[in-house]
Design a protein around this nucleic acid. Structure first.
Length: 413
RNA sequence: GGAGGGUUGUCCGAGCGGCCGAAGGAACUUGUCUUGAAAACAAGCAUGCAGUAACCCUGCAUCAGGGGUUCAAAUCCCCUACCCUCCGCCA
């Protein structure tokens, strides 16, 4: 049964297996604990025994020790089996998420005016080449397809975009982090990226490390095995990193320009929060993203992604898609997931509830800027002569530059 | 890459086969005292899992992680990770 056919829940066979494994694990554990208690008790007798009694007692203790060892092995085995099976269970989908697959999203709102041009609009790559901003050919020469150089105003634009996003994140109380982009297998697994997305991930077998496709991975791992303090409110991090994606299975799709590439930069918001507040935070993250899009003068829509298109870790996902003029459609610029306690349970991130008990936290993540935004930015603000107007919000980050102008062809060669 | 030293609770730090979930100190919490505060004194103060059960209580596990020796391991042995010092190499 496919996830897309249900509003919520998992493949029943997988859940059943997990339940069976859980029962076996508990039984084995109880047996081990009983034997161990007996052994501990017996140990005291051995110690207290007189010299004459000792040999007989030790002989019996040896038998007991063997039984304990066997029970211990069984307990470990069943525990491992439970782990293996239960890790395959996907996160539960929040009530209200649209049922269905990739095409069954619900549009929550459309914002901004869709740009119209009185001239033949150029696509982002053509503009990028005119501006001396994007060089795909040399990217391919050096690293292969889906690699590129950002150059001149292109490079500056990217850094400006990231800086704008970072300043906005700071104003919302986020702590900036520059994260490692190579992580250990258990961190990758804990965030759910070795499930459905395993083929998307670059792996370095010689070092047993994975290249992350988003700083979300390192940000989720940041507080792994910790009890975080949420008494003062949620922990909000803005992680900047380069992201690496194999784009396996997308051959022939979006091959032109920098829309779908193996390497790009991203500023990611990541939040640790009391699960009770997670849905409200999810809305806040989307609002902050919308502020960015609006500041950049982009037309966009917000969609509620359908259950079948959520991946293993998200309980709900809102994507913001910006209008790309030459494609005549909206393309994803941000993705904001509420992972509830899925990641924290795997990574051991807990907080103290009011009663003083520990409980898994909820984690959320969302994009605040990526290289891909340049696509919508260039196309939306282009003019007839191939120049591009810089949105006002971005100008301070470009030394006051208000228009990007085409450079001489000779210099671009 | 080579040589050596280390890893104990929130922190510092003792322990070097059973009486150790672990001395002592600091911090923290509560109480007594005080007009209030400080000081002093007293008590408390790890996590996880299980026992149908919030609290209580009980059992088991945890002294970096894994394995071994032993009736019994924080303590002995092996492996791994991480940290520190020195040497080498290199952005």
């Amino acid at each position: 049964m496919k996830r897309s056919q249900r509003a919520r829940g998992n493949d029943e066979a997988v859940v059943d297996q997990a339940v069976v494994a859980d029962v076996a694990r508990r039984a084995a554990l109880t047996e081990f604990e009983g034997l161990r208690a007996e052994q501990n008790e017996f140990g005291k007798q051995v110690k207290a025994a007189s010299k004459e009694e000792k040999p007989a007692l030790i002989a019996k203790a040896q038998e007991l020790a063997a039984a304990v060892k066997a029970a211990d092995a069984r307990a470990k085995e069943t525990e491992a089996e439970f782990e293996r099976v239960s890790l395959r269970i996907e996160n539960l989908v929040i009530e209200g998420v649209p049922a269905g697959g990739e095409d069954n999203f619900v549009t929550l709102r459309e914002v901004g005016e869709i740009p119209e041009f009185e001239f033949e609009a150029r696509d982002h790559l053509e503009l990028g080449e005119l501006l001396g901003a994007i060089d795909m050919e040399r990217g391919a020469k050096v690293s292969g397809s889906r690699f590129y150089f950002l150059r001149g105003v292109g490079a500056r634009l990217e850094i400006a975009l990231m800086n704008l996003a970072l300043d906005r994140a700071l104003s919302h109380g986020f702590t900036p982090l520059i994260t490692p982009t190579l992580v250990k297998p258990e961190i990758m697994r804990g965030t759910g990226f070795l499930g459905e997305h395993a083929a998307e991930v670059y792996n370095l077998p010689a070092d047993d490390l994975y290249l992350t496709g988003t700083s979300e991975v390192a940000l989720a791992g940041y507080h792994a095995d910790e009890i975080v303090d949420l008494a003062e409110g949620p922990l909000r991090y803005a992680g900047w990193s380069t992201c690496y994606r194999r784009e396996a299975g997308s051959h022939g799709k979006d091959t032109r320009g920098i829309l779908r590439v193996h390497q790009f930069n991203k500023l990611e918001m990541f939040v640790y929060i009391d699960p009770a507040d997670a849905e409200a935070e999810h809305d806040r993250l989307v609002a902050w993203q919308e502020e960015m899009l609006q500041a950049l003068g982009l037309a966009y829509r917000v969609i509620d992604v359908a259950a079948g298109d959520l991946g293993s870790s998200a309980a709900r996902k809102f994507d913001i898609e910006a209008w790309v003029p030459t494609q005549g459609t909206f393309r994803e610029l941000t993705s904001t997931s509420n992972c509830t306690t899925y990641q924290s349970r795997r990574l051991g991130t807990r907080f103290r509830t009011e009663g003083g008990k520990t409980a898994p936290v909820a984690t959320l993540n969302g994009t605040l800027a990526t290289t891909r935004w340049i696509v919508a930015l260039l196309e939306t603000h282009q003019q007839a002569d191939g120049s591009v107007v810089v949105p006002e919000a971005l100008r301070p980050y470009l030394g006051g530059l208000d228009v990007l102008t085409p450079i001489a062809a000779a210099r671009n060669a």
